[in-house]
Design a protein around this nucleic acid. Structure first.
Length: 110
RNA sequence: UAAGUUAGCCAGACGGUCGCAUCGAAAGAUGAGGAAAGUCCGAGCACCUCAGGGCAAGGCGGCAGGCAACUCCUGCUGAAGGCGACUUCAAGGAAAGUGCAACAGAAAAGUACCGCGGAGCAAAAUCUCCGCAAGGGUGAAAAGGCGCGUUAAGAGCGCACCGGCAGUUCGGCGACGAAAUUGGCCGUGUAAACCCCGCCCGGUGCAAGAGAAAAGAGCCUAUGGACGGCCCGUCCGGCUCCUCAAUCGCUUGAACAUACAGGCGACUGUAUGUCUAGACAGAUGACCGUUUAAUACAGAACUCGGCUUACAGACUAACUUAACGA
RNA sequence: GCCGUUAUGGCGGAACAGGCAGACGCAAGGGACUUAAAAUCCCUCGAUCGAAAGAUCAUGUCGGUUCGAGCCCGACUAACGGCA
């Protein structure tokens, strides 16, 4: 994922947490808000596990988001929050869950 | 062959497609660990403080060496454990002083309840005085152990053996050792209680610290700064404080690899070669293929030297014990 | 990343300097009072075994010092706090 497509600022994270809409699943939470271009941020809390599991989860989420990026319609800023169940999920489960959440939000092209 | 002990080593490899970080004009190159961890010690580095010295607080504690330094490492000594290879140990001082030792017990440090003996007292009992510490009981711990002699009864009071302590001698650089020798010297435990002796130590930590540009506030004023020899002229307001923080610190270092030499060893010296992560929402992932035992613990954030803790599965070497065989 | 603090019944919170641990309060259960309840008073209250008496294990976990650790020392675990 290119740096231009990432959220790199604590203030924008806080803005999205405060003003965004939230969709949940057992392993992921998706928060999004309308913006001028597409940006994605990933957040993995300490409850998920130690640093190895956290890093792995972050990489898999990023990979899944990168795969779904060309199919997005509209300009939104997203924050993807990992929940505790993600420690046992593999890449395919994460990809399916993320696609499902985006479809629910109506941001995914057919 | 079985059961063990110690030391070392590895922490998957190769290939394809897409993706990320740093460097580079590009092609491309490089890209987490043995513990990166815990942050328990020791340093470098940076800032603050300081004339110089001391106290307090804190730490360490067998000896000799190694190291930049260490509470680390090596070798040796002592103690404890194991049939043994070997392992473990905060291992100075209790005869400088103070405190504590609950309950029990007469008594927890120079003590006498029961007891043993003598006298008052001719006999028995009781009581009083004196001597003694063998035996009893209590306790985690009771005044060297055990035997013989001596004695009113007893006792290192004397003697033999055993244990400790101190002196001398011998050996060792030293800790210390000796079935060498002298002395009856035998004076509980606790210092991981205060303390004494010896040694070491200023504090804070890369969120240290430096800092371009910009915004805000205050002060100075029609002067000030730059150009210019000066006036004129041209350009710019200037200084302080605070906020934000691009960038630097940031990776070449007590570095690593190989060879030779010195040393029992930790380690050291010389020569040659190499450059080997450097982010700031924070880089290693996804999908496969081949092979295999390939699975565990686990992710750099200023950098080194250690210690401690977590850990799957292999492999190598030396040694010990037992059984069998020669 | 760096620097600190704490841990005791279901909950809060004692135990001075090592010597019988679970004081005290709240909560819970039982009883008395009441037509019934509240309030009040009394009793019980860590776990296992046991009819009881009692025994064993229990101060986050594991070791050490000591005759004896909630307390002293070391290592680990967990939960909090501070520093831009």
């Amino acid at each position: 994922m290119k740096r231009a497509l990432r959220l790199t600022n604590n203030a924008s994270f806080n803005y999205i947490y405060r003003h965004g809409n939230c969709l949940n699943s057992p392993i992921l939470a998706l928060i999004f808000v309308k913006a001028t271009c597409v940006r994605v941020g990933v957040s993995v809390g300490k409850k998920v596990g130690n640093s190895v599991t956290r890093n792995k989860a972050k990489r898999r989420i990023r990979e899944a988001a990168n795969a779904l990026l060309p199919r997005l319609n509209g300009c939104y800023n997203y924050v993807i929050v990992a929940r505790e169940g993600i420690a046992n999920a593999d890449y395919h489960q994460i990809l399916e869950t993320l696609a499902g959440l985006l479809k629910k939000a109506g941001h995914l092209k057919a």
